[in-house]
Design a protein around this nucleic acid. Structure first.
Lengths: 207, 207
DNA sequence: TGACTTTATTAGTGATTACTATAATAATGA
DNA sequence: TCATTATTATAGTAATCACTAATAAAGTCA
């Protein structure tokens, strides 16, 4: 609020669009059609702004996409934090995580996961987008790993369990769920994968 | 040979390119850059033919891609057949399948799986490509299912196991492995996922 | 009011897209 | 040799791509 009032004091013509709303629209388009598959014309149409406004605000298509990636990941990250705070066992935490991944399919039209989708096309780490995607993936896997580490301390993950391997395993299943959600329209296929995944997770952390 | 000699008897200027070699080149390009990311100009360059030859032989870009998808899937399908013939237990068969999926990463440059990659972008079943992708996915999952069905008859899969669920589970892990292979350059990440996947598979078919 | 600053709009840029009309080329068959 | 047929290469098409120069509009401040 205070920021908005400061912004109002600025000179020059005021903006006709809301930055976050614009990001939200862009996110929806990129989720549906991907980075390559979404044109600037489509974006400006949906965002309700003209190309010069888009370029003035976000730089170029690539920079906009990177902003959208962060904007997309933020709520998921927040949800992970909430899960870790509100659960009191490794099993319960990961049950919630596997459950959260069901949303890859059930959020209206099935778009899977923007980060997984994008990693198919922009897999080159040398590009800005590729580096960002790798960073987000690594952050996610690292979050899983740390929770498993905590589980070892707490004693609900067996001491001889290879938690690096388990975190990669969970990360892989979540990615698979995103793919299935996107490619196959069946809710059951995603649910089966995730529930079976959690079931084996339960076994694996006890061995 | 006989066909080639019949072809030689045809009137008109003979072709300057080999159809299968052209498909091989096209496959490599689509694997690297995807359907949208590969232009006709790139294709004709690599295939060593001019646009009119490409269109004359394959129809258009979409039809070429669908041919490439079949061409891509064929050896994998053949390999599955070989695995089923040369193994004498469900466990051994799926061990070989999980092992086969390691090739998503190790085939020189890491391209993952063309079918998985494509299902991200052409996920609409109403399109020719979307329908083909769904058909290939379904065929693959069905193949896994049938082998598990056989396992129940043979007795090395417990009778109360939900084999539909297991086939979806395996299918999802394989898709995840393809994603990780494509997105992350680490061989270990793919290996860990697949070996942990097989390990839990062993447990699941016995319960 | 009028200078200043910022954003919006109009109308484009050259490059690239998938695809093709035309015509030259190279084989066969009479 | 000459018509026929199939494939080739040349040289394009209109449409779309990401992006922008020039200008109009809308605010603040003196």
């Amino acid at each position: 609020m205070a920021i908005k009032e400061i912004k109002k004091k600025c000179k020059g013509r005021p903006k006709c669009f809301d930055r976050q709303e614009a990001l939200e629209k862009a996110k929806a388009m990129f989720c549906l059609y991907g980075y390559q598959g979404t044109s600037i014309a489509q974006l400006t149409d949906v965002m309700g702004i003209k190309p010069p406004s888009l370029y003035g605000e976000f730089g170029d298509k690539e920079k906009l996409f990177i902003e959208v990636l962060d904007y997309y990941y933020a709520p998921y990250k927040e949800e992970l934090r909430r899960i870790f705070k509100e659960t009191n066992s490794t099993e319960a935490a990961f049950k919630a995580i596997f459950n959260l991944a069901k949303s890859f399919h059930t959020q209206g039209i099935s778009v899977g996961c923007l980060i997984v989708n994008s990693s198919i096309n922009s897999y080159d780490e040398d590009t800005l987008i590729g580096a960002k995607l790798k960073a987000l993936h690594d952050e996610n896997e690292s979050t899983l790993y740390k929770r498993l580490e905590q589980g070892k301390k707490d004693g609900d993950v067996a001491s001889d369990v290879n938690i690096k391997r388990i975190s990669r395993y969970v990360s892989g299943i979540l990615a698979g769920a995103a793919i299935i959600a996107r490619g196959q329209k069946s809710t059951d296929a995603v649910t089966d994968l995730l529930e079976q995944g959690f079931e084996s997770f339960q076994i694996l952390i006890k061995a």
